[in-house]
């Protein structure tokens, strides 16, 4: 297991762009924007949310293989970290989960506005609808910031 320290937790839970990668059993990859990454008190587990309507295939992949990769990128500085591990979808989400996602989306819109994205376009990156929470245990973490160190383990 990889243990997430406080500094990395602060980064992961900020207004980062979250991209989620999955693959089906046949090795077909799928990518979607994810929302609301949150580090569990154990520091080895992370939750994020996918939209049921926009991400049925990645959710199917997770159900089938459990494998998941999540890259969090700061839209302004490009600092990026990839977390890989195994997880599963959680059937129900709470009001607290929804509030957490709303907080992340507001922070994301604020961050991308700084680099020129119109708010209405940023807002179109998700739809109002059912969210599915995915909890996963982080096995490996990588520096994903563009540059010579990209891909190196954290």
């Amino acid at each position: 297991m990889y243990r997430i320290d406080e500094a990395l937790q602060e980064f992961v839970e900020s207004g980062v762009a979250v991209i989620v990668g999955t693959a089906d059993a046949a090795g077909r990859p799928h990518v979607r924007l994810g929302w609301g990454p949150r580090v569990h008190p154990s520091r080895t587990r992370v939750s994020f949310f996918l939209e049921a309507e926009r991400a049925p295939v990645p959710l199917g992949d997770i159900a089938a293989t459990g494998q998941v990769a999540v890259t969090c990128s700061d839209p302004i500085t490009y600092r990026s970290v990839q977390l890989k591990g195994r997880g599963h979808a959680v059937p129900e989400i709470t009001a607290e989960d929804e509030a957490w996602v709303a907080r992340h989306r507001a922070a994301f819109i604020a961050a991308v506005a700084i680099v020129g994205d119109p708010p209405h376009a940023a807002r179109n990156r998700w739809i109002e609808g059912a969210l599915v929470r995915v909890d996963f245990d982080v096995e490996r973490a990588f520096n994903q910031t563009p540059g010579p160190g990209a891909g190196g383990p954290l």
Binding site: S73, Q82, A150
Partner: peptide, 8 residues
């Protein structure tokens, strides 16, 4: 190994 890798 079937593990996905995702990046920008």
């Amino acid at each position: 190994d079937g593990a996905p890798n995702v990046t920008h």
